[in-house]
Design a protein around this nucleic acid. Structure first.
Ligand code: ZN
Ligand code: ZN
Lengths: 380, 380
DNA sequence: TAATGGGTGCACT
DNA sequence: AAGTGCACCCATT
């Protein structure tokens, strides 16, 4: 069966995956994904794996229940302990905090780190079905890595203060992986100040539906038919941001022209980033403790050029509009209502979003933009 | 609050708990139990612990829901890793295979080793509520050990082939704990040939209701009111043994005079001991593999003196007859019916029985009785 | 290290 | 009776 390759990881800095100890001959090509759909069994034994082509991928992802995304190629890992940091390089920027669920000498199963959501138990990451399975193939003498359930029970937010991320950075430091350290310094910096993280050429589309983005979008599309609410969740998020810019909080104002306004909305977001507010440790000890600052009405809004799209825009623009049109009622009242109950939704979050919840920025932080590398320290 | 002490562990060989590396000044006295009942809270904060006296213990155990049994004193453990083998010395002879559920520097929680019961899921030890909690008291600079839920979801059978027991024996060997090794060699030997294990003076009662046994019986009594079936389970077991002695298997014969006959029943039991039959490893490599032997009608029955009571008799005789009379219908048909469905019972086993399921013995095994210490090897 | 799925002991957090 | 990250296991095919 033919297996065309999708440039999933073009959206990440490829150098990240291709340097230092992970560098080897298998990485002459780019890591790609193959879509593997579970099909009815030939006999009565094992699940068949189909390597779907990009052409039928979109349909398959929407219709079929269980999808496997095969990462290939992967480096030649000397020890299985090298797999986790390699995956973390890919999935931390996706807002996914990986931990090992189970492992032995020939297998490592990864899942989302448990992070109980006190406000909404069903959104706890403890029950998240997302899995990455790495198995060592004896025949091929290499590790196969497959994303098993590309679904999350929660929103995927990058948390630079998580223990896993600290251990990851320590690993990079211990291995003297300078290039990756620099890349994640840059990533943290851009994340903190809500700068675009994906390379501009990846999001170079003007309509949000170029080939690359369409393919990437296929991958992050819902595996099950998305519910109206789950789709609204992504869209109305922008509206919330929009409204908070003018009303600052709990606004019920709305826009009748979402798509236009989203492209020009400001990056600064007054929504609370619970992760940051609950954790004193930020980039370093010399950083002002965000806990002790009242951010209300103290921020200057930075003007943004349309061609430099934010992650938030990227999320929205790359949504499959055909599907959206099937389910979304653009009635404004519906939109605002969904926003108000966002945290209590019981639905699974069907999007593998890079859900960069923008955190508040004060003037001192903005001052440090000029010297990010000094500022961002990789302590621990 | 006064706390009288109950000689729970008189029924075990006390030397077992009081030798070698566990020997220290705190063991000049015998380890005793204090019954701690959870009472309505004084304020609204923590659960109060009541140290009940032996006088009210019997009532409290039957009426109250949650019971804590405090073991005191315990040795001065140099490391927390010493706690588990100390507890194993106590609980292996009780047929309880302990594993650590959770531990840190100041706490160790023990539970029954998970052993999925394929025939009856509710009887799996995986869900057994029995817990032993060891916590280090900073004030007293000693470990406190409390049995938290003296209830099991399964029958407690000693399994000399379990991995935990092998590790336990290895620990004894590594620590050169010769005395304990000898004690458990003796225990294994007596268990294997269904000889009485508890010291005769502990079961010295002629009616089964001496003070000592009465107190011990209080401790192992059901915390919740026992169901009719759970009580019948213990009683009818004797009948099964009785009947198998004559009918060999699946007998529906019964006795109209249980109490009398039990005292004189034979020790040899034809009931299958699944643990032994499923595991080739017994006392040593030179032991005949019991798997490959047909035991049907090939055993000689050993005559037993009434004063040397078996464990099985002990179980029955120490049952609280007042409670039994409340629930048990001595109708013979009922008894035999319960026996036939014994393994499918969904009820919790409310008795902390030393449930020594007797395993088949062949003539060769009986020959080796003369030289048990040669025969019983502590391999691994 | 046949491939593939899951159980669980237990110390870290 | 903390919840969970992780590895040592085992089961099935
Ligand atoms: Zn997840
Ligand atoms: Zn138990």
């Amino acid at each position: 069966m033919e297996s065309k390759e999708l440039n999933l990881f073009d959206c990440l800095s490829w150098d990240l995956l291709n340097n230092n100890e992970f560098q080897d001959s298998t990485l002459q090509q780019k890591t790609t994904i193959r879509n593997i759909s579970k099909q009815p069994k030939n006999r009565r034994s094992k699940k068949d794996k189909l390597f779907s082509t990009p052409d039928n991928l979109s349909d398959a992802l929407v219709k079929d229940q269980n999808k496997l995304i095969h990462l290939d190629p992967v480096p030649i890992f000397r020890e299985r302990s090298e797999i986790k940091p390699w995956l973390q390089k890919i999935f931390f920027p996706q807002g996914i905090d990986l931990v090992i669920e189970r492992s032995d000498s020939s297998k490592v199963i990864f899942k989302c780190k448990a992070n109980p959501n006190r406000t909404c138990k069903s959104e706890s990451t403890s029950r998240c079905p997302f899995r990455i399975r790495a198995t060592f193939s004896i025949k091929l003498q290499k590790w196969n890595i497959v994303v098993v359930n590309n679904i999350h029970s929660h929103k995927c937010k990058f948390n630079p203060n998580s223990e896993e991320y600290k251990k990851f950075k320590k690993y990079l430091k211990d291995n003297n992986d300078i290039d990756t350290i620099k890349l994640f310094e840059e990533f943290e910096y851009k994340f903190k100040f809500n700068l675009p993280i994906f390379k501009p050429n990846v999001i170079k589309c003007d309509c949000g539906l170029t080939k690359e983005i369409s393919l990437f979008n296929n991958i992050v599309l819902p595996i099950n038919k998305p519910s109206k609410e789950s789709l609204l969740l992504t869209k109305t998020k922008k509206i919330t941001k929009k409204s908070t810019l003018t009303n600052n909080s709990n606004s019920t104002s709305h826009s009748n022209n979402n798509k236009i306004k989203i492209k020009t909305e400001n990056f600064i977001d007054f929504n609370t980033n619970a992760n940051l507010l609950n954790n004193n440790q930020s980039f370093g000890d010399d950083v002002t403790n965000l806990n002790e600052i009242d951010f209300t009405n103290m921020f200057k809004l930075e003007e943004k050029e349309p061609e430099s799209l934010s992650i938030e825009n990227f999320e929205f623009e790359t949504s499959n509009n055909d599907i959206l049109s099937e389910f979304i009622d653009f009635n404004d009242d519906d939109n605002t209502k969904t926003v108000s109950t966002e945290s209590e939704l019981n639905d699974l979050s069907y999007f593998l979003n890079v859900d960069l919840v923008n955190d508040p920025v004060n003037m001192k932080d903005l001052d440090s933009i000029a010297t990010p590398n000094e500022f961002i320290e990789f302590g621990l």
